[in-house]
């Protein structure tokens, strides 16, 4: 039975209203503000039109460019690690082994913890003089582990923390994908004598591509906007060595109250996220696109 388009729009109206209020209007507000010079604590605290000057400043802002680079590096390492680990764990959980249910439950626990609590927990574990990790690293290996002093350790630690926190999410999505794979092509390949890695490469991976693509997109978007857990663990330090773009924008917008410039940064970051996802989508679907 055909329903009138009006009914459809009416049913969609609440959702659209919420989206407009919480998404479209703030976006438009940020867009407008990005063309103004506006700092509450300037001698003239009123917004002043500066055209594209905020965007021009960004290109020459070494701190901003560094935070972009660090964010991209962080995103690359965490997403790659999580996808590889998550896929491997999902494959493992497709098999039977002792205490599988317990392992699955424990493995999923980090997902249930708020990022701010994850950061706090890791901070407690890594603070010199209090945390067990620096203590045992020094006691067993003589390693001076101080996130607040050594940039490489800080960066590696925030990457590890994010991998620990979000790999279970990848595992679960992969597990869902693997569980729904048709078994016939795999069985036929085995009968035809295919090796396991051939089955993986030529059958499982192509079938899993939609799940992989979705998961990678979600993780990239999350990683590009990471703030809370890194804030708790390192506060962007030492120096600015883990000041990822989300943290950098926060510092510009709140403590510095430079709203116009911070808005321009936010827009550029959004644009960058869209471009990266689009490029990735284009790359991962290129073969199918050519074939069609």
């Amino acid at each position: 039975m055909m329903r009138s388009p009006t009914t459809g729009w009416l049913l969609l109206a609440p959702t659209i209203a919420v989206l407009v209020l919480t998404g479209v209007l703030p976006f438009l507000y940020v867009l407008v503000i990005s063309f103004f010079d506006w700092n509450l604590f300037a001698l003239n605290p009123e917004p002043r039109w500066t055209a594209a000057n905020n965007f021009r400043r960004l290109v020459h802002d070494a701190e901003f460019l560094k935070s972009i680079w660090l964010t991209l590096l962080f995103t690359f390492w965490v997403v790659l690690s999580q996808i590889v680990l998550g896929f491997a764990l999902a494959r493992l959980m497709m098999r039977d082994f002792p205490f599988k249910k317990l392992f699955r439950a424990v493995h999923t626990l980090p997902l249930m913890i708020a990022p701010i609590a994850v950061g706090a927990t890791w901070r407690l574990m890594t603070v010199p003089g209090l945390g067990p990790i620096p203590y045992y690293l020094k006691d067993w290996f003589g390693l001076d582990y101080r996130l607040s002093m050594f940039p490489d350790q800080a960066f590696a630690s925030v990457v590890l923390m994010d991998i620990w926190h979000w790999t279970p999410f990848v595992t679960l999505t992969m597990l869902a994908g693997l569980s729904n794979l048709p078994q016939e092509p795999v069985e036929q390949a085995r009968i035809d004598g295919a090796q396991e890695w051939q089955i993986f490469r030529d059958i499982i991976l192509p079938f899993m591509k939609p799940v992989l693509l979705t998961t990678i997109f979600i993780r990239i978007m999350d990683a590009l906007r990471v703030v809370d857990e890194v804030w708790m663990l390192t506060q962007g330090g030492p120096g600015a060595e883990t000041r990822f773009i989300g943290l950098h924008i926060w510092k510009i917008v709140f403590p510095k109250t430079d709203y116009g410039y911070g808005s321009a940064m936010s827009l550029l970051t959004l644009y960058m996220t869209i471009v990266i996802c689009w490029l990735l989508y284009a790359a991962m679907t290129a073969r199918r696109g050519n074939a069609s």
Binding site: V127, G129, S148
Partner: peptide, 10 residues
């Protein structure tokens, strides 16, 4: 700093 506890930089 060289004479401070290791947590000084945090």
């Amino acid at each position: 700093l060289q004479y401070a506890p290791p947590e000084a930089t945090a």
